[in-house]
């Protein structure tokens, strides 16, 4: 009961309509990122092995498609062995940027009452996830560079981006991070309403695998699949950032791609805002 009392008094100390300022948000993100960077560097070996295990997937795709490209006289759908290599090596970084708070994690959050503690904070809980995962990304990018170096030596990528492409890529990987964070949060919130979420999550991830450019570059997909993907957020989180760096892509396509990312961020943020209101109403604390 004392814990509740403390919370109550702290809340009472603050004006009821307390709204964190922009500077408070910047400080919050800075602290979350710093903490998470320090934390994740402690587990660098674990992080490394995890990242290496993850490399099997793109290497499989890469080897298969390089084999096909060579069998077809050096090229499939505009991709050569070299551009496939570039695609799937950049893939490894984008995949890591795509790792955010898993929708499967919500069950534990709710069951163990972790959420109750977050609800009494004056800041929306999503900021804690966004901040700490963003810190982890900094570590991931640092650890990724040597891996990319080794992969490049083995698979000989053809990579020749313009300055504009590099800038767009640097922005796009963070856009991808934000979009995936928001949409997986949205998905995870289903846990408030039903306990049979695994099936929905699995279906979502399967659709994502096929429609994002994770399995193969979208350009190799049948026409109708490419059209379908244009109406979904998946490609913005995966295929677009990769193609932004690897090409082939025009200046206009870069701008359109970034604007599309912005569009999905806004859609995701608005949806999270409304879904969250509904979800919290549904929430019954288990413990505290």
């Amino acid at each position: 009961m004392t814990a509740t009392d403390t919370v109550a008094t702290t809340l009472a100390d603050r004006p009821i309509d307390y709204e964190p300022t922009w500077r408070a948000y910047i400080r919050l993100y800075g602290t979350l990122m710093r903490t998470s960077i320090a934390q994740q560097f402690q587990y660098r070996t674990a992080n490394y092995l995890y990242m290496i295990g993850m490399i099997a997937e793109p290497v499989v795709y890469l080897v298969v498609w390089q084999t096909i490209a060579e069998a077809q006289g050096g090229e499939v759908g505009g991709y050569t062995a070299g551009t496939f290599a570039a695609y799937y090596i950049v893939w490894t970084l984008v995949r890591n940027m795509n790792i955010v708070f898993t929708p499967f994690g919500w069950e534990e959050r709710i069951r163990e009452g972790q959420l109750s503690a977050q609800l009494v904070l004056p800041v929306h809980p999503i900021h804690y996830d966004l901040g700490s995962f963003a810190g982890w990304k900094v570590v991931v990018i640092a650890l990724w560079l040597p891996i990319a170096g080794v992969l490049a030596l083995v698979f000989r990528p053809t990579l020749d981006p313009t300055a504009g492409q590099i800038v767009a890529f640097a922005v796009a990987i963070w856009g991808a991070y934000l979009i995936r964070s928001l949409f997986l949060w949205l998905l995870g919130m289903l846990t408030f309403f039903t306990t049979r979420v695994t099936a929905i999550f699995e279906a979502y991830f399967a659709a994502e695998l096929l429609l994002s450019g994770r399995l193969i570059p979208m350009a190799l997909m049948p026409e109708w699949v490419q059209t379908l993907a244009m109406f979904l957020p998946f490609e913005s989180t995966f295929g677009f950032p990769i193609t932004a760096l690897v090409g082939p892509i025009t200046q206009e396509e870069l701008v359109v791609g970034l604007l599309l990312q912005l569009f999905w961020i806004v859609v995701g943020a608005v949806a999270v805002r409304f879904a969250w209101r509904g979800a919290v109403k549904h929430y019954t604390a288990v413990s505290g």
Partner: peptide
């Protein structure tokens, strides 16, 4: 749940194969 997971996994595998054989007649 497991059945669905298995189904999704096999379906993705088969789709990947279909995509491969869209572009080639044999893999090595």
């Amino acid at each position: 749940v497991q059945l669905l997971q298995t189904f999704v996994q096999v379906a993705t595998g088969l789709i990947a194969l279909a995509l491969i054989f869209d572009h080639t007649t044999d893999l090595n």
